[in-house]
Design a protein around this nucleic acid. Structure first.
Lengths: 332, 332
DNA sequence: CTGGCGAATGTAATCGGTTGCATTGAAGAT
DNA sequence: ATCTTCAATGCAACCGATTACATTCGCCAG
């Protein structure tokens, strides 16, 4: 038994034609005659031939791959986005390569923006250096974005989303509303914080420094925020909090519950993202739903459009939704 | 400004050497003289040359890519495994390609097992057809496995893990213990069900058909199981349940809580996986922890070992841990 | 009967590197 | 002084497809 994979010349020899004819039969059957086509196809069957992709890609000066740069693969928040991306890329004949930007160094990053590695890039991490991504392969940004980078963006209106959360709490009658922000320097953090500030101002509500808690989107930082909040005087601390991620909201709730407080009786909580299980913790979390699958899907579609030569530099804003569950209520 | 990427011949011309020397300078600097090396490196800098990967791969008959076949990318359970895989593959110079086996058809599947697409395969889906994966690229199975497929497996001892869960509940004094199984035909389902049955028998406890609830690992199916359980007589239904996934445990708890019951006072619940937020729902879930990151990491390492020519066909069993939280207690 | 045309196919260049083999020249051995 | 040996480098084949261009042949119009 031969272990060598058959090549196009093997098929050609067996079918009694040239490699050019085999190639044409496979990629453009209309060009060859009925008889030849049958002979070639028989030879392909007989040999079990499959074209070598590296050779084809070399010739075509393309790779058939799209790289998604994820800030933290372990974060389940991204799994649905990636799923959305994959659902578009697969049927379109592209491979999805995934790279964790924490693992990859700056030098490696440059590698990913290599035209000989990938035909395009989907960036889910807004903290990447813009210059490393300039003028290489086509890029689309999803969810987060890199400030200096001119590329189509697919995102939500984070300011408005924060406004929805704040308005919900204000509508319930809360006067002292706090915010647990994301990591410093993150574009989402800025937008959500900005929306929070603006909306509170519009509603004539105060937003003292003591009502702004630092965080980094992680569950642990939500717990830390809870400890800060618990240490504050019950008379002056916020009666409601909007947290910039569900994970933080989860950590926050867990911690205040451990201290015997009840959500939403003692404090109302709004999260952000509407991640998987959040509807099933107790209390089910009121949150802002991001259309994660759609975000990934649309980003992939935009990238394919760019690759197909359609230029469309405008951003796509997908709608969010305030999902009211049981972690918010009127203040006592 | 030229938009053409510089090729190796451009560098060679500028440095006044042959392409062979440029290639050697880049891949095996020891072979060229000090002076030449400097000249070539200067030329590389000046042109901004980066080697074309498709060409290199073609020559090397390798792709530099590893495909991970995931049954459902949207399921956050896999994100940490993928993260573990990526953390090994990246530094080793491999690309991680990810494909969702639900999206990909059987024909596409064959494509992924193509030596010209990927150098190796990590399978996270035990329901794939074994024959489609035979005799192509090296394969490693992680978590799940395909029964007929002879490939190194990296997994946990699902039978023993189920035994730990059951023993924990039995030790607490539960006499009627139920099990919510995974999807039919799944290898994990079989193993966990088997371990449940064996351990119950060993402990002299009954396992009537009414104490076995169907499921499919999803949250919804956990909720359905809860509805079945709620409909059973409180005198005879299980006082404790072991569910084959945390997602199902979550759904189960949510549903019984909606009906006014209290966990663990009215029913004890043990999950499986120890997924992200599960420690922070209320009550925090007692569960079997799978070392998901390690599972991915080891699987990737095993695959790299195979690619490096080291054969090691034996399975790797990673340890699990029973994490006792607050969803289990003595029966009333 | 011949030139023109188009369908079918072959020839060979090409994509962009890598590497076996040949060549050169200088140092060291005899 | 001649032979080896080895470091440094170039030449050209090669990886395996695709495709521009050339060629062949049959058919039809003039």
């Amino acid at each position: 038994m031969k272990h060598d994979r058959p090549k196009i010349s093997d098929v050609a020899r067996m079918a009694g034609v040239s490699t050019a004819t085999v190639s044409r039969t496979l990629s453009n059957p209309g060009l060859v005659s009925e008889d030849t086509r049958a002979a070639v196809q028989a030879a392909v069957e007989a040999t079990g031939y499959r074209p070598n992709l590296a050779a084809r890609n070399l010739r075509h000066r393309r790779t058939g791959g799209i790289v998604a740069l994820v800030p933290n693969l372990a974060n389940p928040f991204f799994s649905q986005i990636l799923s959305g991306i994959a659902s578009v890329l697969g049927p379109a004949g592209y491979n999805l390569l995934i790279a964790d930007t924490r693992v990859a160094g700056a030098e490696t990053l440059l590698d990913y923006a290599e035209p000989s590695r990938a035909d395009g890039l989907i960036i889910l991490d807004g903290t990447l250096p813009a210059d490393a991504l300039q003028g290489r392969v086509p890029v689309v940004e999803a969810c987060e974005w890199v400030p200096g980078l001119p590329a189509p963006r697919v995102k939500i209106d984070n300011r408005a989303a924060a406004g929805m959360a704040i308005n919900h709490l204000a509508d319930l009658g809360h006067q002292r509303i706090g915010h647990v922000a994301g990591p410093r320097g993150n574009v989402l953090t800025e937008a959500r914080l900005g929306g929070t500030q603006d909306t509170l101002r519009d509603r004539g509500l105060p937003f003292p420094a003591s009502a702004l808690y630092p965080g980094d989107f992680s569950l642990e930082s939500g717990r830390d925020a809870a400890m800060l909040w618990l240490a504050q005087s019950a008379d002056t601390r916020p009666t409601a909090l909007f947290l910039a991620s569900d994970a933080m909201a989860c950590g926050f709730i867990g911690e205040v519950q451990r201290h015997g407080l009840v959500v939403p009786r003692d404090v109302s909580v709004v999260g952000f993202d509407d991640i998987e299980l959040i509807a099933h913790i107790s209390p089910p979390l009121t949150t802002i739903r991001q259309p994660r699958t759609a975000l990934g899907r649309v980003a992939a579609e935009r990238l394919l459009a760019v690759l197909a030569g359609q230029i469309s530099p405008d951003d796509t804003i997908l709608p969010v939704e305030l999902v009211i569950r049981s972690s918010t209520a009127r203040p006592k």
